[in-house]
Simulated scan of single mutants.
Amino acid sequence: MNTEEFVQGFYKEKQDIIKEYLSRKPTTSVGALIKSLNLSDHQNKIMEEIINNTCTDIYYSILLGLEGSAAIGGVQQRYDLKDSSGNQLNDGDIGGYAYEYFQETN
């Protein structure tokens, strides 16, 4: 795995979560709660935007925090991230890929 694949994994998780939360047959408690609201099509679109923007903020912040560009819980430091094969995942470009995936393609 490389840095871009690492960030892509977070982006894929975001997309999967949004899809699950807005599913007609949700399997999560959040999805079930949203479904229970019986939202109109217009309201569903707004809910999708809310969830998308919330997830973008969260994942982007976590990735920048891991890189050391932002604080996690008030502590700002760079973390040494490696996959099980020893490949360095935090090569200093997490922020660039995070911006590309979470801000440009949001």
Rank of each mutant, 00 (worst) to 15 (best):
K14A: 08
E104L: 12
K45N: 15
Y21D: 14
Y59V: 04
E48F: 07
R24W: 09
E100G: 00
N44V: 09
N38I: 02
Q76A: 11
L66F: 01
G92M: 10
T56L: 07
L66H: 00
N44A: 10
G92E: 07
G92Y: 08
F10I: 01
I51A: 05
N87Y: 08
E104R: 06
N53L: 09
F102H: 01
L33A: 13
S61N: 11
L39W: 03
T54N: 12
Q43C: 08
Q103S: 07
T27G: 10
D57Y: 07
Q88L: 14
A32I: 10
N44S: 13
V7F: 01
G73L: 06
I51S: 03
A32L: 14
L39H: 05
Y79Q: 06
F6V: 02
L39N: 04
S23K: 02
G73M: 04
L66A: 00
Y97S: 01
L33T: 06
E49W: 07
Q43M: 12
F10G: 04
K35D: 15
Q8Y: 09
K82F: 08
Q88Y: 07
V7M: 01
H42E: 15
N90E: 02
L33C: 08
L33K: 09
Y97H: 13
E13D: 14
L22R: 05
F6Y: 15
Y99N: 14
S84Y: 12
F6L: 02
H42A: 15
V75K: 08
K19F: 12
Y21E: 12
N90A: 04
N52P: 00
Y101H: 07
I18Q: 07
H42N: 14
K45Y: 13
H42W: 11
T54G: 11
G86Q: 04
K12Q: 15
A98N: 02
K45H: 13
L81M: 02
Q77V: 09
D80C: 05
C55H: 04
T27H: 07
I50D: 05
I58K: 05
I72C: 02
I34Q: 02
E67A: 03
P26S: 03
E5A: 11
L89R: 01
I18V: 14
C55R: 05
T56A: 07
L66T: 00
K35R: 13
N87V: 15
I17R: 09
L22T: 10
N52V: 12
H42M: 13
I46C: 06
F102G: 00
S23H: 04
Q77F: 04
V30G: 01
K45C: 10
S40M: 11
E13A: 10
G86V: 10
Y101E: 06
I51T: 07
E104D: 14
S61E: 08
Q8I: 13
Q103D: 11
Y101N: 01
N106S: 13
G92P: 15
I94R: 01
T105C: 09
E4R: 09
A32H: 06
T27I: 13
T105Q: 14
A71F: 05
L81K: 00
I62G: 01
S61Q: 10
N106W: 10
D57C: 08
I72W: 03
K45L: 15
I17C: 09
K35S: 13
S36H: 03
N87L: 12
L81E: 00
Y97F: 15
G68S: 05
Y79S: 08
G96V: 06
L89F: 03
N38S: 13
E20D: 09
